[in-house]
């Protein structure tokens, strides 16, 4: 294994995040704080507790998940798209690195960034609402699995995209709507029966539900189902990435 290469890619990507600290960390923290102010403080005071949890506290796992998904996808997609766009990908393709090592470098860096961000948002949330984490191990496991899975998805989008428009297309048209409709801001019990059934087809629901369970022990679907869904999604992403490298799709003519 070319560990020097993995380290080079990883540190290079992390250095990019450090260079763009303002947009990497500060802006997601500010937007999450705004969510707390608007949904938690302004609207939340008029919403009753949900299964014994105040609405402000109920929001925290959903908001962290929202940021985790969007940041993982955007970090990883940009990380691999940018060398394609500038042409510097030639170096990656001509280097003695395996595809696995390339993925570990890029996805590892993107996942690290979103994990750190998730923890920062968690700490920020502590300023707004009283927090408790019932199952810390599961909380971290869900955090890591989600960050890795959606960084893989971002990596795939970055390879697939042949322009900046496409790079934004999936996050804007797929990820954000699914997250908003996946129980980030509400429990599906609050929906009419028809929409409850529809929501069960939204994969993000399982991630948010499992993650919220790790905080408060309450969930929309069983924890086992949440874990199964995220592992299934991880498997699908790994299969697609492996196919991309096997065929050289959008990388090698």
């Amino acid at each position: 294994m070319n560990l020097y290469a993995v380290r080079a890619i990883y540190t290079f990507e992390m250095a990019r995040a450090w260079r763009t600290l303002l947009q990497s960390v500060v802006s997601p923290v500010i937007s999450t704080s705004l969510y707390f102010v608007v949904f938690g403080a302004a609207i939340g005071t008029r919403i009753a507790e949900i299964e014994g949890v105040s609405y402000g506290a109920f929001l925290v796992p959903g908001l962290i998940m929202l940021m985790l998904l969007t940041q993982s996808v955007s970090n990883a997609s940009f990380g691999i798209f940018f060398p394609k766009f500038t042409g510097t990908i030639y170096e990656l393709l001509s280097a003695p690195v395996s595809y696995f090592e390339i993925v570990v470098g890029y996805v590892g860096a993107a996942a690290t960034k979103s994990l750190v961000l998730g923890l920062i948002i968690l700490a920020t949330a502590g300023f707004f609402v009283p927090l408790s984490v019932a199952h810390p191990f599961w909380m971290l496991l869900f955090l890591v699995l989600t960050a890795v899975t959606f960084s893989l998805l971002g990596f795939i989008i970055g390879i697939w995209a042949d322009g900046f428009e496409k790079l934004q297309l999936v996050p804007l048209l797929v990820i954000t709507p699914l997250t908003f409709l996946g129980g980030s801001f509400y429990s599906i019990d609050m929906l009419p029966p028809f929409w409850q059934a529809v929501t069960l087809f939204n994969p993000v629901l399982y991630l948010v539900s499992g993650f919220r369970w790790s905080f408060y022990g309450i969930s929309d679907v069983s924890v086992g189902a949440s874990l199964f869904m995220i592992l299934l999604f991880l498997g699908i992403c790994l299969a697609v990435v492996s196919w991309i490298f096997k065929t050289g799709y959008r990388l090698k003519p």
């Binding site: 070319n2 020097y4 290469a5 380290r7 080079a8 890619i9 290079f12 250095a15 170096e91 990656l92 280097a95 003695p96 690195v97």
Partner: peptide, 11 residues
């Protein structure tokens, strides 16, 4: 940074 990165990338 960019030259050092290349060295690492090539193992």
């Amino acid at each position: 940074a960019t030259v050092s990165f290349s060295r690492g990338l090539f193992g």
